[in-house]
Amino acid sequence: MLPKDKLNRINALANKAKKVGLNEAEAKEQSALRKEYLETFRSSMLTTLKGVTIVDPKGNDVTPEKLKKIQNKDPLH
């Protein structure tokens, strides 16, 4: 997760972009912050999915094979 100050900056730039627009430096900063946010989000989501097992009502493991392959590559599993 990104630090609160970076999330606040992302929001401040988004609001300014909607109201008055951004100068070139601010647009570059916004792009870099968004990229960092997405990388952090994707990493966090992947970590969460690595710990997921899907079980049907009968108790059978029905985790998709693609997810099982990702989990088997993870040395923690």
Rank of each mutant, 00 (worst) to 15 (best):
N72H: 09
G21E: 10
E36Y: 08
A25F: 07
A12Q: 13
A25I: 10
E39A: 13
L7G: 05
P64A: 13
D74S: 02
T40R: 14
N11Y: 04
Y37F: 15
L76M: 04
T40K: 14
L33P: 02
T40M: 11
G51Q: 04
R42C: 09
I10K: 00
G21H: 07
K58I: 10
K18C: 09
T48I: 10
K73M: 02
P3M: 11
E39F: 07
K35W: 03
N23R: 08
K58N: 11
K69L: 15
N23S: 12
L49A: 08
G59T: 03
K28C: 01
F41Y: 09
T48F: 05
K66A: 15
T48L: 04
K35D: 11
I10F: 01
T47H: 15
K35F: 05
E65T: 14
K73S: 09
S44Q: 05
E39D: 09
K68Q: 03
E36C: 02
L22W: 05
T40H: 07
L2V: 04
E39L: 12
K58L: 10
L46H: 07
T40D: 12
A27V: 10
A25R: 08
D5H: 08
P75I: 02
K6C: 01
K69W: 04
K73Y: 06
D56V: 03
K28M: 06
S44I: 00
T48Y: 05
N23G: 15
K58H: 09
K6G: 00
S44K: 08
S43N: 11
L33Y: 02
E36P: 02
L2G: 01
L67V: 07
G21K: 12
L33M: 03
P64G: 13
I10E: 01
L67Q: 02
Q30N: 12
N23K: 13
M45T: 08
N72S: 14
K68V: 13
L22I: 02
E24I: 09
E65I: 14
E65V: 15
I54F: 08
H77Y: 11
P75V: 00
L49V: 06
T53N: 08
V52E: 00
V62D: 05
H77I: 06
V55L: 06
V20N: 13
K73H: 10
N60M: 11
K68S: 06
L76T: 08
P3H: 11
N60F: 10
A12E: 14
K58D: 12
L7R: 08
K66Y: 12
Q30K: 07
S31M: 02
K18Y: 15
G51P: 01
E65M: 09
K4R: 14
F41S: 03
N60Q: 14
K28W: 04
D5M: 03
K66M: 12
A25S: 10
D5V: 06
S31L: 09
K4D: 13
D56K: 09
R34S: 15
E24T: 14
P75G: 02
G59M: 01
L7W: 10
N11A: 14
L46T: 07
L33C: 05
K50M: 05
L7E: 11
K6R: 08
G21S: 12
